[in-house]
């Protein structure tokens, strides 16, 4: 195939302990390490492996977010993507808006395959891929843990509640990827420096004629209650009695 498009979201790094703003409007992101959403990183790794096996010619990465998203796109370029596109928007974005913006990019670029994470680890929406597939009228497979490219189709193994499901879908297609698909490569610092020469286009969402008005209003963001300390019991009988007293077993 000619092109693979990979969508990357900038999120708080998964190693960071999340703190809530005192006014409970959002989590603290100022001075916090931000990274590529880990599921999206797996999607990019898969795209690069397909390209390196000679089954694709170009890997393009795209992100929607503030100017600082360029850092994550540079990391993606250092991993091996050929070029990057940033749709710059400083406010929070919602899945449908992102899907509409990505749809415009898909129309411009006409990729045969679109890869993205099954969800982002910040809002856990798990919607953008499915919405984008609908807007593009591409075939779709979600939660991929294995992917092989055929001449004009894909074989995708999906992680579902019952176990594994294997589908064959036609290209062009959208695949959202799960955790076990691959182990993304480690980016070395000199590669990040070299990646500065690669192309990174910045697009204004107004030029794509998509309304950025939100559909939702966040009322409050609160931390989960702190975990209470447990009690020590001497044997299984006591455990059973304790659970029974709490009404957790009959």
């Amino acid at each position: 195939m000619e092109k693979i498009l990979v969508c990357l979201k900038r999120v708080v790094d998964y190693n960071v302990k999340i703190r809530i703003k005192p006014d409970e409007t959002d989590v603290v992101t100022e001075g916090v390490k931000m990274s590529i959403n880990p599921f999206d990183e797996i999607a990019l790794e898969e795209a690069l492996r397909i390209k390196e096996s000679g089954q694709a010619n170009e890997v393009i990465i795209v992100s929607v977010g503030p100017e600082d998203c360029q850092q994550q796109l540079r990391t993606g370029l250092a991993m091996g993507a050929d070029r990057a596109i940033l749709v710059e928007h400083s406010e929070n974005t919602e899945p449908l808006t992102v899907a509409k913006l990505l749809h415009q990019i898909v129309q411009q670029e006409q990729p045969e395959l679109i890869l993205l994470g099954k969800q982002a680890i910040d809002d856990d929406c798990n919607q953008t891929g499915q919405m984008l597939a609908e807007l593009c009228s591409y075939s779709q497979a979600t939660y991929a843990s294995k992917l092989s490219v055929g001449s004009n189709s894909l074989e995708v193994t999906r992680e579902v509640d019952q176990g594994l499901e294997t589908l064959e879908i036609d290209l062009p297609a959208i695949v959202t990827v799960d955790l076990r698909l691959n182990d993304p490569r480690y980016v070395k610092l000199p590669d990040i420096m070299k990646a500065k020469k690669k192309s990174l286009d910045v697009i204004n969402p107004n030029d794509l004629k998509i309304s950025m008005d939100p559909f939702f209003k966040v009322i409050s963001v609160t931390a989960p209650p702190p975990r209470e300390s447990g009690i020590k019991l001497s044997d299984a009988g006591e455990l059973f009695d304790a659970l029974k007293a709490k009404g957790l077993v009959d």
Partner: peptide, 19 residues
């Protein structure tokens, strides 16, 4: 510039370390 590259990788973690 080599040292600046390394600094750029570690700096975003400062607040996390502090906390």
């Amino acid at each position: 510039s080599i040292a600046e590259g390394f600094l750029g990788e570690t700096m975003p973690w400062e607040v996390e370390a502090e906390m």
